[in-house]
Design a binder for these strands. Structure first.
Lengths: 163, 163
DNA sequence: GAAGAATGATTCAACTTCTAAATCATTTTT
DNA sequence: AAAAATGATTTAGAAGTTGAATCATTCTTC
């Protein structure tokens, strides 16, 4: 287990990140990721764990493969991921009686409770990252971001050697 | 060299990603990152290379260490990164005559030209990611994001073992 | 101005995260 | 019943990153 050590001298935001929208988006996402990761340590879970918990709860994937697709990750990764959640008592696998190849993943009540706390932490971190915006601006930003997110699709694409 | 292979069945955006602002920010950032990475392959550079080029051009760091801090990465990483850019003829190191410990990194004219093309690609990708927004909304979103980014600071924090 | 502390670049070993490919079980198709 | 497809899992390995150690140079301070 590690924690963030003494900070190096903080550097003002480079101009480059404020000049192009693409770089800004990546920057804000990374900032949220890193601070969120750090804040979630208090609950003993990673950012990836939190994402999995949130997707399992909200979207109820009908198999691990569907969960993997929703998360945009390789199916193999989800095996270890769910193993961890299961060991931690946060999630459980149940063989689908209608198709015994599938494992339906669901949260335990402990998992649901932890998710609530993780959601609260994520909200705090998001508020901190967007500290500079007024309440009105924050609302507008949230709506616009939701619109942008909603109209995208996730897909897991495999790397393939070029011929 | 690899490229993105045939897509798996694209899955609709999970509800979980549209429910909390923190998850949305990470999601949009990742989407931009991945699509940008893919689009930049055409220029033979990675997303990280593009970030470095943009920071070097816009912020003119006075040493590799300052560049590392601006990028939020470990100094060791920047050695290999700049080696690559130098080998590709995109950047060059010059020993600072006033402090010969420092290497001042700057773009070659080839680097500047490539950066212009990369900027254009990044703009295209950003527009595609935010496809669902109208022109007005896009403008508002850009301003709000810039405000959010500008008031943050970058810092590289080392991992430290907990005692 | 010499000795020691601080700063910057670099190398190296290790760690984390992730993926492709192969394997096995189960279901679907023919 | 045989063959193909689908889902979970294991294994080996790639890619990106970091901490610590090392060397060169500059700064501090006595």
């Amino acid at each position: 287990m590690t924690t963030r050590g003494p900070a190096e001298a903080p550097v003002p935001m480079p101009k480059a990140f404020a000049s192009r929208l693409g770089l800004m988006l990546v920057r804000v996402g990374d900032e949220m990721s890193q601070r969120g990761q750090q804040a979630l340590e208090e609950l003993g879970i990673s950012g990836r764990d939190y994402t999995a918990l949130a997707v399992i709860a909200a979207d109820q994937p009908r198999s691990q493969l569907e969960l993997a697709r929703m998360m945009g990750k390789a199916p193999a990764l989800c095996v270890a991921l769910i193993d961890e959640l299961e060991t931690a008592g946060l999630a459980q696998r149940v063989r689908d009686p209608e198709d015994r190849r599938r494992s339906i993943v669901s949260l335990t009540s402990a998992g649901e409770q932890l998710l609530e706390r993780a959601d609260a932490i994520a909200d705090e971190v998001a508020a901190a990252v967007l500290d500079g915006l007024s309440a009105d601006e924050l609302g507008a930003f949230r709506d616009l971001t939701r619109r942008a997110v909603t109209e995208t699709t996730t897909e897991y694409q495999a790397d393939v050697a070029r011929t």
